Amino acid sequence: MSARNAAQSVTPTQAILIQIALALGGFAIGTGEFALMGLMPNVASDLGVSEPQVGHLISAYAMGVVVGAPLLAIIGARFFRRHLLIALMGFYALGNLASAVAGDYSTLLVSRFIAGLPHGAYFGVAALVAASLVPVNQRAKAVSRVMIGLTLALLIGNPLATLMGQSVEWRYAFAFVGLMALVTGLSVYSFLPVDRNEERNSPLHEVRAFGRAEIWYPLAIGAIGFSGMFCVFSYLAPTLLEVTEVSDGWIPVVLFIFGLGGFTGNILGGWIFDRLQFRGVGWLLLWATGTLLLFPLATDNLWLMMGMCFLVALMVGLGPALQTHLMDVASGAQTLAAASHHAAFNVANALGPWLGGLAITAGFGWESTGYVGATTAVAGLMIFFMAWRQLSTAGATSSV
């Protein structure tokens, strides 16, 4: 079904309710994904492990996304999008409830991997549904509205989970995420109708169409160029405690400010891409490089740290920009490409904490995460120029 036909099949009120339901799922997933970053000291103390080991729990979730996104997208290619979204939310609820009751570090590690499996497929399908509800020149903004749920998780969900973990116990944060996932499934069931004329591809067709360079370049940009934000964000709590030397009560406050930056960046990313197309990705990567280089200089002052966290979080704008670009270049493999976009971002979520952990363990200090992140942003910028040249050579001017 074309985007125009889909847009004509629902009323404006229905479209808004559908986008709210999809954004609610983004809020649940984002809170589940980022919860450990604010609760790193609490989980480490409770399970008797080091903070870099808690970083491995973050990486385990991210690797679950990497494995699950293409696998579940291929399996779900023949399903109606409504049915697939409901099933994915049910799966996500189970993974987080299992995390809430995990008895030891090893069990929690496995539970986080399982919880990550439906993440990418959900966001990929949700983005395709959102884009189908609006005219072509408004797709990036529609995708960013769905992704508002993810940025609200940074803004509200993660600080709330941190407060919950500090005041009660970290397990309640994952139980809350499981409940939100169930509410999302019910909302999708209530508001998103089944479209019997929906175009569906065979899994084999999606796989065959997936192997093109114009698809893999933006995925590589997301996997490498975006890892710098996760490098900084994953170790933000111990950086505040050890370098900025504030009490743990400031952690939710700084996380809120980081989330405000992510919320703003998400909206800006959609706006920038609708106007600049693929060029906007290059400008966002340049911004990321500059702010990550400045981050270590702000870590010893709380007020500078707050401002820099806001600026670093604007990198979230890469999400809707790259997602919409993939819709332009992934003809014949849109479900798989859209899901793989989030797999790529979770390669970044695994790569960032791992590289940051290496630098910290080597004795370069908590603030070194900014320099590590800037290096990955430069690498992403190099891939962007390769992608730009490939698109220009192929004559894909509409995507450039």
Rank of each mutant, 00 (worst) to 15 (best):
N346P: 14
R279Q: 04
A337Y: 10
T324C: 05
V329Y: 15
T299P: 07
A338W: 07
M315G: 02
T291N: 09
W283E: 02
L336R: 02
W271N: 06
M305F: 14
L297H: 11
H342L: 03
F273R: 01
I272T: 13
C309I: 10
G290A: 02
D300W: 05
G269E: 00
I272G: 02
P296G: 04
V347Q: 03
T335H: 05
Q323K: 03
A288C: 10
G319Y: 08
L302M: 13
Q277W: 03
M308H: 01
G332K: 14
A337W: 10
F310E: 10
M315S: 05
D328R: 15
A288H: 07
G290L: 08
L326Y: 03
S331H: 11
Q323F: 04
A338E: 12
Q277P: 00
R279K: 08
A339D: 04
A344C: 11
T335K: 09
D300M: 07
M305Q: 13
G270S: 12
H341L: 09
V329W: 15
T335W: 02
A298Q: 10
G307C: 07
L297R: 12
F345I: 14
F295C: 01
V316S: 06
F345W: 15
L311Y: 11
A288S: 15
A339H: 03
T335M: 12
L304V: 14
L292G: 08
L311N: 02
V347A: 12
L286Q: 02
R279N: 10
L292H: 04
L304T: 12
C309V: 13
T291C: 13
L276R: 15
L326G: 04
G269F: 00
G270N: 08
L292I: 05
A348I: 03
M315W: 02
W283P: 01
G317E: 10
L292W: 05
T335P: 05
D274V: 09
L293T: 05
M315K: 00
V329H: 14
W283I: 13
M305S: 13
L318K: 06
A313P: 06
A333F: 09
R275T: 09
L322M: 11
G290C: 05
L311A: 11
A344L: 10
G319Q: 11
M327N: 08
A343E: 00
T335F: 04
W303T: 15
M305W: 05
P296F: 06
M327V: 04
G332R: 15
D274A: 10
F273S: 00
M315H: 01
S340K: 12
F295V: 00
G282E: 12
F345Q: 10
F273M: 01
L285V: 03
T335I: 13
F278M: 12
T289H: 05
D274T: 09
Q334L: 11
M327Q: 12
L286C: 14
A344D: 07
L285H: 06
L297T: 14
